[in-house]
Nucleic acid binder design. Structure first.
Lengths: 157, 157
DNA sequence: CTACGAGTTCAAGCCGACTTGAGGTCAAGA
DNA sequence: TCTTGACCTCAAGTCGGCTTGAACTCGTAG
């Protein structure tokens, strides 16, 4: 397959494919003249790369996760570690999503007056902001319940 | 409060605070000599900004979401839209997390040989890659079950 | 009164992931 | 044979969100 076909079948621009080759994420199996030739297996590899990118991983993290032959290279421990990393991100995002949803219908004048919203802010990791509460708010522990930890769900209501 | 105190209490570097002021995300309440003075309310605003950043929003998106006086400015519709946006991201990330967890213990030689893994790839949005399956795989619809949609949970097992 | 340290401005640099542009090569079709 | 157009290389540009550095200005402690 030439670069155009790879590009067409994956939606990845040729410039990106060259860039990825340069970075060692993919490899061409040779040249016809000066033109790169790719093995169809590169499609699979590109899907894996897309998976990683969608997961927010940097290109060099991704290349660290793949062997040259397209197999995943990490041991179970490191894969699980990555999964846990993602899990943290997911929890943060979930808290933020709930904060937004809540803010959309909370009647409080200032969002920070609303305990629900403040809990979301803390869960989102913006909690180090020791916001001097304008009003009589007492500190609340930022903790996740057993159920929340179990389900990965963070419900603010 | 001077810039150092804001910085100390929020963990945000002074350079970032100046940058955010320049971008219109925060405002100083005046100057003593040439030095900025901030209202304590800026702490609250910074928490909101941190919330947005943690949610992956760009600075100008965030400033579009806040009034100059620190109140959220968006109507319910736009907030909900943002929440839905996040929701999509969360689903993608969840699929990827499960793909990683699965890959950590799946015995398949090539991950793409494993239907579970391939489902994750598709759910992650890397599905446009029409990976010519090396082997007899039939196309599977990428759909999310009613339960999955309801719980926001994507279980691959 | 003066030196210090914390603040200021402005321009430039950095990072990652690409994209763009100029200029070159080459196989195939008219 | 010549032209076309798809590909090539390499350098430079882009974008967002900051950081860094040089040069400067103050209020205050000694």
């Amino acid at each position: 397959m030439d670069i155009a076909e790879v590009s067409r079948r994956t939606g990845v621009p040729a410039s990106t494919l060259r860039y990825h080759e340069e970075k060692g994420l993919i490899a061409s199996i040779g040249r016809r003249g000066q033109r790169r030739l790719f093995d169809p297996a590169v499609l699979e590899r590109l899907a894996l790369i897309a998976l990683g990118r969608a997961g927010g991983f940097a290109l060099d993290e991704i290349s660290a996760m793949l062997t040259p032959d397209g197999l995943p290279k990490m041991d179970r421990g490191r894969l699980d570690a990555k999964a846990n990393e993602l899990d943290q991100t997911i929890q943060r995002l979930t808290a933020i999503r709930e904060a937004l949803r809540h803010a959309a219908r909370c009647p409080a004048a200032r969002p920070m007056e609303c305990p629900t919203f403040r809990r979301a802010v803390r869960l989102a990791g913006a909690g180090r902001f020791e916001v001097a509460p304008i009003g009589p708010f007492k500190a609340e522990a930022v903790s996740v319940t057993r159920r929340e930890r179990k389900t990965g769900d963070v419900n603010l209501e």
